[in-house]
Structures are given as structure tokens and as C-alpha cells.
Nucleic acid binder design. Structure first.
Lengths: 216, 216
DNA sequence: TATTATTTTTAGACAAGTCTAAAAAAATTA
DNA sequence: TAATTTTTTTAGACTTGTCTAAAAATAATA
């Protein structure tokens, strides 16, 4: 239906527009590691196919069709990540690149059966929600640890940085999805956050606290 | 490592060379539904990459490297077919096109784990052998039903035609992998083959008998 | 507001893979 | 062996997606 490149553009635009609304050419170029001029070319093609709203110099947003396609790609990506971790025993930091390829397998029937095979999971291994076969999913409002008050806490429920370096760091310190944590103290000198978890103290940097999301 | 197109060419050349040794430009063109001129272009590229032996007008054969790549693609294809049938409950006539896409997922680690997950199967749903992680597999010499003598028989073990029309026909008449059959009679008028199976008689055409393979 | 800097777009070119039409080589037939 | 047919290759062009360099539009600053 859509080329691999088109799908990657739609996914990138979707992800960028969640945070920022309208998306700029340069943002897309950065996100896809390509040049602004290449992006402009592609934007015209996507607009011709009614997948994005685009007027030059004004940035882009997805049309309803475009969003549906993007959400579907994300559904496929997250279901394959779940499969790789739950069925093939990969670690959560190993699956991104593989799922990046697998998300382009086109059969809807296949992905729906895969969904069923795994018992209709609602979160992928990184805590991100998996859209159902109609594209519906709950956006839970998660907060980075750096944004909550001292003496409050919650359940680790997601990450903002999906790099394997970050995920490996978290794994090493047991900072995994589902863990209950409490912010004990913030050291004002360098904003180090002192967490209490499993009755032990753990110091994490501001950077880590910014990228680790909790549900209150 | 290799482009999708390169992989498809290597696979096609591999399959054609099993039957005929050296493969011609036109054979490849027919098998990939493309034009002879396109094939010539690609053959030069594959030869540059040392994947095939090619001198113009003389046909092609795979190099050792080329064969290794081709066998690996076939391994991936057949493992995914097995997965789709055994784990996701697809029927044997539904899986070809999906596997055709999935065979290009590149991770070796992924395919080896998938292999393990399914218990290292040795045959795909159509009876074709699945190469192991070193590319080894047994080529069992199967005979079409049309080639065996009256009153002899064997186990249905493979098909020569993988089209869904043919597979659906077989399914409908319970002519599935593993079934034991015996050739009772060949009607000389039109070469219809009368099979005995499950203590019942079944008439199949010469065409069907040609495409249904048995192990003696 | 005028100037400068940044962002975005256009113009022209390139690589991969495909095509049609025509030429060259090989195979077949007379 | 010569003529004809078939197969294969070459030549030139098109599409998709990319790039660099330069121009145009927008945003920021003086």
C-alpha cells in the first residue's frame, strides 16, 4: 500500500506531532537523519496522496488517513517488540532495530492474529501503549521522575529515551517497568535524585530522572 | 547486507538452478515477472559482488557466497511459514505471500531464536526441508505420484505447485502431508490416477498427480 | 524598520531498479 | 553453410528517493 519510506515519514511525523503539534521540515530531517531538501520532496508526495496537510513554509500535520496509517505502523512495531521479548526472550534493549524492520510487514490479518496469539497485550516492553486493531489506545499521562515532588512516588511505567545504552543502565539497576519507587531527596548541588526502591537508596542523575517515567 | 531485489534474484536463481544447473536470463525474467533486459543489468551487479558466476550469453550459477545467501533466505522463508501455520493457525495455502515479505527481515539472531522457539522444525507446512542455522538440510528424493507404478504407494510428503488453488484442492480432498496413499489404477484414456486412501477411492487428474510428491 | 540569520524550497544531479526498442550473439532450420 | 528465429545484451529513458548548492521565505535582532 505504502512504500517503506512513506511509512517511515508518517511514523516520524506522528511521533513529532504528539509533542509539538505542527511539525517542521527540519525536525523531520533530524528525526530521519536525512536532509531538509529530501524532506520537502517527500512532503509534496505525501500531500498529493492526502496523507498530510502541507502548505510550504508552514509545517505539516497528518490527515485522518495519515494518522490512521501511522498508528497502525506503531501498533505493528510494538506488537513485534512484545513478541520478541515475551516469546523469543530478547532483552528490552535489543528489540528496537528488529521491530523497525518487522513493522513494515503489511498483512493486517497477520498482525491481528499475532495480537491474539499473545493475548492482546496493551503495553510493549518499554511501557508504551499498543493500539488495538481499530487504532484505539489509552494515552496515560506519565511524568518524568524529575517532575514529581520529594516524598512522593509511583510505579515505573515508561521511558522517554529508548536507546539501548539507557535501557541497559536501567536494567542494571533494576529500574524496570512495574517497579515502585519514591523520591527521597533531591540534592540541590547537581540535581541528583535519591530514590527509595526495594528498601534501598539509589542515586540517579538529573538526565536519568528526566527520561524515566512514572504513573502516580 | 543485501537489497530486497538482490535477495529475490538470488533466491530465484537458486531455485531454478536446482532443476536445471545453469540458469538463463529468460528463465530468471519469467520467474521474477520482469524483463530480460532488467535481468541482464542485475546479473552484472551480482557478478560484481561475487554472488554469481556470469559470462554474457552463457547463463549464470551461484558462487559459494551466493548460494549461502540464497539458502539463508529459504531458511527464513520456511521458518516463517512454519510459524504462521503452527503458531498463528493460518492454513497452508495462506502463508506464502506473508513469508515472502518476512524472509527479508535480516537478523540472524532473530531467526535462530524463532527456530528454537518452534523446536527446530525440519519441514515447512508444504513438506519442504528447512535448512538449519549452518545452511544444512537433507534433500529427500520425492517422486510425483504420476511417476510411480500401479499398486505401489507411499506417504504424501511434498508439492511441486505451491499455488493456493492447488493447495486448497488438496486440503479439500484430505490430500495432506503425512497421508498414506496407494495407486490403484491408471485410467489409460486420460491418465486419471485412482488412489486408495483411508480405504476409499479417489480419482485425481494427471496434473494433480504430477504435482503431488510422495516418499516411497 | 532594516539587516542578518535561519529555515525551507527549488534546481539540477545521482544511484538503484525498471522499461522499450534496437543491436548482437547464439541456436535452429533449411 | 546460409538464412531465420530465438535469446541476450546494449542504449537510452523513467521513477523513487536521495544529495549539494543556490535561491526564496520567514524569523530574529539591531
Amino acid at each position: 500500500m505504502y512504500t517503506l519510506t512513506e511509512e517511515n515519514y508518517l511514523k516520524a511525523i506522528y511521533k513529532l506531532s504528539i509533542q509539538t503539534g505542527k511539525v517542521s521540515t527540519n525536525q523531520i530531517a533530524a528525526s530521519l537523519a536525512t536532509k531538509a531538501s529530501s524532506v520537502t520532496d517527500m512532503l509534496r508526495k505525501l500531500a498529493d496522496k492526502l496523507l498530510i496537510n502541507y502548505t510550504r513554509y508552514q509545517g505539516v500535520s497528518l490527515t485522518q488517513t495519515g494518522e490512521k496509517v501511522a498508528v497502525n505502523i506503531i501498533r505493528r512495531h510494538r506488537l513485534w517488540e512484545f513478541f520478541l521479548v515475551e516469546k523469543l526472550n530478547f532483552k528490552w534493549d535489543e528489540v528496537h532495530d528488529m521491530a523497525e524492520e518487522m513493522e513494515h510487514i503489511s498483512s493486517t490479518e497477520l498482525i491481528d492474529r499475532l495480537d491474539e496469539f499473545m493475548g492482546f497485550p496493551t503495553r510493549d516492553p518499554h511501557g508504551d501503549p499498543i493500539p488495538d486493531c481499530n487504532g484505539n489506545f489509552k494515552i496515560i499521562d506519565l511524568k518524568p521522575i524529575s517532575a514529581i515532588a520529594v516524598h512522593s512516588g509511583g510505579i515505573i511505567s515508561g521511558v522517554r529515551d529508548h536507546s539501548s545504552a539507557f535501557l541497559q543502565y536501567l536494567e542494571k539497576h533494576q529500574l524496570t517497568i512495574g517497579k515502585k519507587i519514591m523520591v527521597k531527596e533531591i540534592i540541590s548541588y547537581d540535581n541528583t535524585v535519591v530514590l527509595q526502591m526495594d528498601n534501598k537508596d539509589l542515586h540517579i542523575s538529573r538526565d536519568v530522572a528526566n527520561n524515566l517515567l512514572i504513573a502516580l
